[in-house]
Design a protein around this nucleic acid. Sequence first.
DNA 1: CATGTTCGTATCATTTTGATAGTGACTTGA
DNA 2: TCAAGTCACTATCAAAATGATACGAACATG
Lengths: 143, 143
Amino acid sequence: MKNLSDASCPIARSLTCVGDAWSMLILRDASQGLTRFDEFRKSLSIAPTILTRRLATLTEEGLLEKRRYSERPPRDEYVLTAAGRDFLPVLILMGAWGRQYRGEGRLARYIDAETGDEIEPVAVDAVTGAKIGTRPIRVATPE
Amino acid sequence: MKNLSDASCPIARSLTCVGDAWSMLILRDASQGLTRFDEFRKSLSIAPTILTRRLATLTEEGLLEKRRYSERPPRDEYVLTAAGRDFLPVLILMGAWGRQYRGEGRLARYIDAETGDEIEPVAVDAVTGAKIGTRPIRVATPE
DNA sequence: CATGTTCGTATCATTTTGATAGTGACTTGA
DNA sequence: TCAAGTCACTATCAAAATGATACGAACATG
């Protein structure tokens, strides 16, 4: 797909760095604590060529950071940056959509690790508290 | 990418139907009221071959619905279903991420169409009201 | 010193994408 | 009435991305 990184639409811009399924699944796994090449490879059953490329892109884009965890042999792991961590709510919300509309069979649930309660994610406007989607939204394009 | 529609992860399931940039941009445009082939084509500068395929997939997956708006000549438009409309919060939240982390230059803003106030989207837990990402999340896998 | 672990790269077939041109069924304007 | 325009596509084909598999490099372990 063509490069949308200079589009005026923030959705399009986001999609240029994380607009494919593998990247999002890598971020999902990283949010659950996976950091190493082989962890991702086994968890996702992804071809190593693709994984290499995706990890490199996510690192370039600033969602992951390469960190050396062993000097000999030289070994790097990939940890989430602040930008990467802040993408988690998008994934969780996408998961909530999937649960609602693609929810046949047994599905994983998101649980608050401390209270043990199931999380029920919704997007709201931080100012008014209104659920996103319940009121019409207009897009204001600059100049 | 391989088919993840039977994975137990709801994020993976969502990604099988909307896990690519074009589909999400089509949904974005559809949420803004676009319905016709040529509207999408011009808005997105997408090749007609791809657009045909994406619209067909989104229709099969139940996010869009084909509706005849002219008998002669036979013409169909694509309107969002409930599932398609409910995907908007995911996009808006992704846009908020893009604004924060890819926000150089002039960017479009989301405005409440009635009040005119800018929307500041956040994902929260509907039960506790806590922002998603501020507390650790555990994934509970079934059986 | 043989085997295993980890993080990859090389190679190559298959699949997907994307650009461009064309088509069918009309409508509209001169 | 006839040329031009609209709209929703399909056909064709080159280019790019994906994915499967094999292999490599740099060690650690037994």
